[in-house]
Simulated scan of single mutants.
Amino acid sequence: MSVAALIVAAGRGSRAGEGVPKQFRPLDGKTVLARTLEVFLKPPRIDRTIVVIHPDDEELYREAIHDISGELLTGLLPHAYGGETRQDSVRHGLEALASTAPEIVLIHDAARPFSGADLLDRAIEAGRRWQAAVPGIAVTDTIKVIGEESAVVVTPDRASLRAVQTPQAFGFAALLNAHRKAALSRLNDFTDDGALAEWAGMPVHVFEGEPGNIKLTHAADFDEAERRLKGSPMAYVTRLGTGFDVHAFGDGDHVWLGGIRIPHDRGVIAHSDGDVILHALTDAILGALADGDIGTHFPPSDPQWRGASSDRFLVHAIALVRRRGGLVDHLDTTLLCEKPRLGPHREAMRHRIAEICGLRIDQVSLKATTTEKLGFTGRSEGLAAQAAATIRLPETSP
Score class of each variant (00 low, 15 high):
Arg341Tyr: 03
Asp57Lys: 06
His345Gln: 05
Gly295Asn: 13
Ala16Ser: 15
Thr396Asp: 14
Ala290Gly: 14
Arg62Leu: 10
Trp130Asp: 11
Gly13Cys: 05
Glu355Cys: 00
Arg15Gly: 01
Leu94Gln: 11
Leu331Gln: 10
Asp141Leu: 12
Leu94Phe: 10
Gly231Met: 11
Leu73Lys: 15
Thr155Asp: 04
Ala111His: 15
Asp275Asn: 10
Asp291Val: 06
Val32Arg: 13
Asp121Thr: 15
Glu148Phe: 03
Ala280Pro: 04
Ser185Gly: 11
Ala248Asp: 08
Ala64Met: 05
Gly212Leu: 10
Ile262Thr: 06
Ala200Gly: 01
Ala288Thr: 11
Pro102Gln: 11
Gly231Cys: 11
Asp265Glu: 15
Pro113Asp: 11
Gly267Arg: 04
Arg379Gly: 07
Gly147Asp: 12
Cys357His: 01
Val328Glu: 07
Pro55Met: 12
Val364Met: 09
Leu331Thr: 04
Pro394Thr: 06
Ala174Asn: 11
Met349Cys: 00
His330Thr: 10
Ala5Met: 08
Thr166Tyr: 07
Pro233Asn: 05
Met234Cys: 06
His218Ile: 12
Ala308Asn: 08
Gly267Asn: 02
Thr36Gly: 08
Arg350Ser: 01
Phe313Thr: 01
Ile143Thr: 13
Gly13Tyr: 06
His279Gly: 06
Val246Lys: 12
Pro263Cys: 03
Ile107Arg: 09
His247Trp: 01
Leu175Ser: 04
Gly136Lys: 04
Ala10Asn: 09
Ala290Leu: 12
Cys357Pro: 02
Ala178Thr: 01
Leu119His: 13
Leu106Cys: 12
Glu148Tyr: 04
Val204Arg: 00
Ile294Pro: 00
Asp221Arg: 10
Val204Leu: 03
Leu289Met: 05
Asp28Glu: 12
Leu257Met: 08
Arg227Thr: 03
His108Ile: 09
Thr217Pro: 03
Arg48Thr: 10
Ile260Glu: 14
Ser272Met: 02
Pro203Arg: 02
Leu176Ile: 07
Ser160Glu: 11
Leu196Gln: 10
Asp275Phe: 02
Ile294Glu: 09
Ala5Pro: 08
Gln386Asp: 07
Lys42Pro: 08
Ala384Val: 01
Ala384Arg: 04
Gly136Ser: 09
Ile262Val: 14
Ala178Leu: 02
Ile53Ser: 07
Asp118Ala: 15
Gly358Val: 06
Leu216Ser: 15
Glu355Gly: 08
Leu73Phe: 13
His264Cys: 08
Arg346Leu: 11
Ser89Phe: 11
Gly82Trp: 07
His66Cys: 04
Pro135Phe: 09
Gly343Asn: 04
Thr377Arg: 07
His92Trp: 03
Ala5Phe: 12
Asp253Pro: 00
Asp118Thr: 14
Leu184Trp: 03
Lys373Trp: 13
Ser69Arg: 15
Val246Arg: 13
Trp256Val: 01
Gly241Arg: 13
Gly70Gln: 15
Pro394Leu: 08
Gly17Trp: 05
Leu286Asp: 06
Phe298Asp: 00
Gln363Gly: 11
Gly243Arg: 10
Asn213Cys: 14
Leu331Phe: 10
Ser232Tyr: 04
Pro211Asn: 13
Ile285Thr: 05
Gly325Gln: 01
Ser99Thr: 02
His254Asp: 02
His297Gly: 00
Pro263Phe: 05
Leu359Val: 08
Leu342Asn: 05
